[in-house]
């Protein structure tokens, strides 16, 4: 199994398009995942009864195979990018929700009491005290969700999308390994780069962690 380098140099435009489309699908999913799981996590953190229900429900969603989620969405959103993004978003929920709840749990009660004693309103406490302190744990979840989404986008190749995953179908149908190797390599590269960027982002967002370290 040899790599045909001339194929790669002849297809740089296609590879760029697919990589951009791949990354776009994964990042959109993580964005919507955060948008949904942040408020849900705040609710799960405050209301004990809903906590078990929400975490349990997201766990069940996670056991549903990704191909099944994409397929089950077909009657609703068809063979479109929307189906890909919804499917991936569902997958990010379990990680993001659990980590955000755990992050909020990890904020010391005394810190919250201090904020209350200083007359800070609950919403302000949440935004300026609790969420920033929960950030390291939330970011750990964002990193896992991002890497996972980048890898899962290729499953959507079965429903005609899939970014770099299209290279797998292409290579498979033509019995030609080069696109497949390139697709796997680019997916891994995207995951590593995205993860490194998120580590850097966390470093920028949590200046108080730096002084201690």
């Amino acid at each position: 199994m040899t790599i045909d380098w001339s194929w790669i140099s002849g297809h740089t435009d296609d590879l760029t398009t697919l990589t951009v489309s791949h990354l776009q699908a994964a990042l959109t999913a993580v964005f919507f995942g955060l948008l949904i799981s942040l408020p849900l996590a705040v609710v799960a953190h405050r209301v004990r009864f809903l906590r078990g229900f929400l975490l349990g429900a997201s766990n069940v969603l996670f056991t549903i195979p990704s191909i099944a989620i994409f397929v089950l969405l077909l009657p609703i959103s068809g063979l479109t990018r929307t189906t890909t993004v919804i499917g991936l978003t569902v997958y990010t929920l379990v990680v993001l929700l659990r980590n955000t709840v755990e992050g909020l749990d990890s904020v010391p009660a005394k810190t919250k009491e201090a904020a209350k004693a200083m007359g800070t309103r609950p919403l302000r406490t949440l935004l300026t005290v609790e969420l920033p302190l929960a950030l390291p744990v939330i970011m750990a979840g964002v990193r896992i969700a991002t890497v996972m989404s980048i890898s899962l986008v290729s499953v959507a190749t079965y429903i005609g999308d899939g970014g770099l995953g299209q290279l797998f179908t292409d290579g498979f149908q033509r019995n030609y390994p080069t696109p497949v190797i390139v697709g796997v390599a680019l997916t891994l590269l995207l995951a590593v780069v995205a993860d490194a960027l998120l580590v850097a982002l966390q470093y920028v967002l949590t200046p108080w962690k730096r002084r201690r370290a």
Binding site: M148, S151, T157, L164, G165, L167, F168, V184, T187
Partner: peptide, 8 residues
């Protein structure tokens, strides 16, 4: 987590 199973 990063390794795409379909590709593999």
């Amino acid at each position: 987590r990063a390794l795409p199973t379909v590709g593999l």
